[in-house]
Design a protein around this nucleic acid. Structure first.
Length: 284
DNA sequence: CACTGCAGCGAGAAGTAG
DNA sequence: CTACTTCTCGCTGCAGTG
């Protein structure tokens, strides 16, 4: 989508998301700041004076998040539980010993960074890789490795808009959409748009009574989203061509896999063979 | 209270290194 | 080819809002 279609706001307050004023059907077309310098400046100044305010993105920094007080939410899994039985705690079991669970939860507060953890149902195999910090067990080592990142106080992926850190690239990408206002998931019925698919599906179910025909955990059709303008395409190829044409300077083009890049390069070249001068531009 | 926004995390898919 | 890493997804639950 050409930038000419984007709605640019005059001096938008960087942290306060003003795109809320936009109708949902236009949210994907929200202006994306060309420079984030003003935002970073705002964040720095604001964080110094107002870091404790609720909802303040900087106040919700990784350090703070790591000591999140929402440690007890009823779904806590204690190391003891995990070690004693490989199976998940049933809701009934949790309910029958609520006092005990609360005590355990308090103990856990001291040792576990974050407790919003659930126990995977099903029987665990003999080879369990357990987390030294919280005792959670995993069937695969890579799952443990992945899990260990959540105990790391240093978040690898920082939001350039607010500085908040994430362990996961996708979590960051998803978070950034709250700043850019890009909402790729649109309701076909009322045009309301959402940043996350689950929000759309929840909306469809509750508002329109539309039940998704997917099984539990079944993967949906992948939606390829241009994080520059909110354009969505049915394939990676489609998205690549969009970015190539509309956002030539995008980092997305550099991150594209060699395989796809080669494939698309061939396509673009063959399409543009009519004009050899353009081919030279592509090679650059 | 219903609905939406947001984020943590388990897990599978895809990519990459050796 | 295998092991490892990165990317991406869906599920879940809490917080905010009207």
């Amino acid at each position: 989508m050409p930038r000419a279609f984007l709605v640019k706001r005059r001096t938008p307050p960087p942290i306060v998301r003003t795109w809320d004023e936009l109708p949902d059907e236009e949210r994907a077309d929200t202006y994306i700041p060309d420079s984030i310098d003003c935002i970073l400046q705002y964040v720095t100044e604001d964080s110094l004076s107002n870091s404790s305010s609720a909802g303040d993105p900087v106040g919700d920094s990784p350090e703070r998040a790591s000591s999140d007080s929402s440690l007890c939410n009823g779904s806590i899994t204690t190391p003891t539980n995990l070690h004693q039985c490989g199976d998940a705690l049933s809701p009934e079991a949790e309910g029958s010993s609520q006092e005990n669970a609360e005590e355990q939860a308090l103990d856990l507060k001291r040792s576990v960074v974050r407790s919003k953890m659930k126990v995977t149902t099903g029987t665990l195999s003999e080879d369990i890789y357990s987390c030294d910090i919280c005792g959670k067990g995993f069937r695969l080592q890579r799952m443990l490795n992945r899990h260990l990142k959540c105990h790391n106080q240093v978040k690898r992926h920082l939001c350039t808009f607010c500085g908040k850190g994430f362990n996961d690239t996708f979590d960051l990408k998803r978070h950034v959409r709250t700043h850019t206002g890009i909402r790729p998931y649109k309701c076909d019925i009322c045009n309301k748009a959402f940043t996350q698919r689950c929000s759309l599906e929840s909306h469809l179910k509750k508002i329109h009574g539309v039940q998704q025909g997917y099984a539990y955990k079944q993967r949906r059709d992948k939606l390829f989203v241009c994080e520059e303008c909110g354009y969505t395409g049915p394939s990676q190829e489609d998205l690549y061509l969009h970015v190539y044409n509309s956002h030539p300077g995008s980092a997305f083009l550099k991150k594209t896999t060699k395989k796809l890049a080669a494939l698309l390069q061939h396509k673009i070249t063959s399409v543009l063979q009519v004009s050899p001068t353009n081919e030279e531009e592509i090679k650059q």
